[in-house]
Computed example of a mutant assay.
Amino acid sequence: MPELPEVETVRRGLQPSMEGAKILKAEARRKDLRFPFQKDFVARLEGQTVAGLGRRAKYLMADLTSGDVLLMHLGMSGSFRVLKDDDRNAPGHFHYERNQDRAHDHVIFHMSSGAAIIFNDPRRFGYMKIIPRNALEDEPLLKGLGPEPLGNEFDAAMLARSCANKKTSLKAALLDQRVVAGLGNIYVCEALFRARLSPRRLAATLATKKGEPAEYARRLVTAIHDILNQAIKAGGSSLRDHRQTNGELGYFQHSFRVYDREGEKCPAPGCGGTIKRFTQNGRSTFWCPKCQK
Rank of each mutant, 00 (worst) to 15 (best):
R12A: 13
A51V: 10
K129C: 11
Q280D: 10
A116Q: 11
D101M: 05
S198I: 00
A217N: 02
N229I: 03
E19I: 09
F80L: 05
R257P: 10
P147Y: 06
G146T: 14
L150D: 15
I108E: 12
S17A: 15
I23F: 08
R178P: 08
L24S: 13
R81T: 06
E190V: 03
A26G: 07
K210V: 02
Q230T: 07
A28M: 04
R219M: 13
D226A: 13
F154N: 15
G78A: 09
R12F: 11
K167H: 10
I108G: 04
P147R: 15
H254V: 03
R34G: 05
A21W: 03
H242N: 11
G144S: 11
V188R: 08
E6S: 11
H93Q: 12
Q230A: 15
G247V: 01
D68L: 02
K22E: 15
S255F: 08
K39W: 03
G236Y: 08
R34V: 04
L183K: 05
R178C: 12
C288K: 00
S77M: 08
M158N: 14
V10R: 02
L170E: 07
H225K: 13
M1N: 12
P289E: 00
A231E: 11
I275W: 00
H225Q: 15
L71M: 13
E46M: 07
G247A: 01
Q292S: 01
A217Y: 06
S169A: 13
A207Y: 02
I118K: 02
H95Y: 06
L45E: 07
G13K: 04
S238Q: 09
N185L: 07
A157T: 10
C271S: 00
R243S: 03
L150E: 14
A43Y: 10
D176M: 04
G211N: 02
E6K: 07
S284F: 10
T208E: 08
V258R: 07
M72P: 10
M76K: 03
A156F: 08
F41P: 08
T168Q: 08
R11C: 07
Q177R: 04
R56V: 01
D241F: 15
M111V: 01
L197N: 00
C163A: 07
A156Y: 11
P132A: 14
A223K: 05
D101Q: 03
V50N: 01
R98N: 10
S284V: 04
Y96C: 01
A217G: 12
Q38C: 03
G270N: 01
E248A: 08
G235F: 09
A43R: 13
A62D: 03
C271E: 00
E264P: 06
A231C: 13
V180C: 09
A156K: 08
G13V: 05
N229S: 08
N165D: 12
E6W: 03
E137D: 10
I275T: 06
G272N: 04
D138N: 11
G13I: 09
R283H: 13
L70Q: 14
G146D: 13
Q280R: 07
V10F: 02
